[in-house]
Simulated assay, not measured.
Amino acid sequence: MHEMSLCEGVLQVIQDHAERQGFSRVETVWLEIGALSGVEVEAMRFCFDAVVRGSLADGARLEIVEVPGEAWCMKCARGVRVAQRFDACPDCGSYQLQVTGGTEMKIKELEVE
């Protein structure tokens, strides 16, 4: 389950920012997670609670903003939404798609004290 290591990375980023910006407690963490990122949202929620226990983010609320998958269809010559990698174009059925969005996972915002 790589979500555990992803949560550990998120906590490290939070701790680094706390040192630089001087906050002592995190109330809410907003994560943007792309549909094509390979991250399981429910596993992320479970791991987040376990990883932040005893830290400045202990008890913090995790809000996940899901970003849709996007691709450029070479046959249609336009952008389309896709649910997962290697899907066909929802308009023409072509598999000549280049992923253009929805692969990211990033901390969007923190609510801190």
Results as ranks from 00 to 15, higher is better:
K75C: 06
W72Q: 09
M4N: 13
S94E: 04
E63K: 03
M74C: 09
L56E: 01
A83Y: 04
F23E: 05
E111N: 11
V13H: 05
L110M: 10
L97N: 06
G22T: 10
C76W: 02
V10F: 03
M4F: 12
F46H: 04
A83C: 01
G34I: 01
W72V: 09
E27H: 14
V39Q: 03
W72C: 02
I33E: 00
M1L: 12
M105K: 10
E66W: 01
R85F: 12
V41Q: 03
G54Q: 10
Q84T: 08
W72P: 11
R85T: 09
A71S: 06
V10Q: 08
E27D: 15
A43H: 05
H2N: 14
E27A: 15
R20L: 15
F86Y: 08
E66D: 10
C92G: 03
W30K: 05
R81M: 14
C92W: 12
Q96A: 05
V39C: 06
C76V: 00
F48D: 05
V41M: 07
F46T: 01
G34A: 06
K106F: 04
T28N: 06
L97M: 05
E42I: 13
H2P: 11
L11V: 07
Q21D: 15
L36M: 10
I107P: 02
A77D: 06
A43N: 01
S37D: 03
L11W: 13
A57R: 02
A43R: 06
S24T: 11
I14H: 06
W72M: 09
V13D: 08
L97C: 00
F48I: 10
G93R: 09
D49V: 03
Q98E: 15
Q96V: 03
C47M: 08
G9C: 07
K108M: 15
C7E: 07
H2T: 10
Q12T: 14
V65Y: 02
A77K: 14
D87P: 02
P90E: 01
W72T: 02
E3L: 10
G59K: 04
C76Y: 09
D16P: 14
E42R: 00
I33R: 08
Q21L: 15
L6A: 14
Q84D: 10
C76E: 01
V80F: 00
C73G: 01
S55Y: 06
E104C: 10
A43E: 09
S55K: 00
G38E: 07
T28Y: 01
P90H: 02
W30G: 02
C47G: 07
G54V: 06
E27S: 11
A77M: 13
A43L: 09
R85K: 04
L36C: 00
D49R: 08
C47N: 09
V10T: 08
L36D: 05
F86A: 03
A83L: 03
L36I: 08
A50K: 06
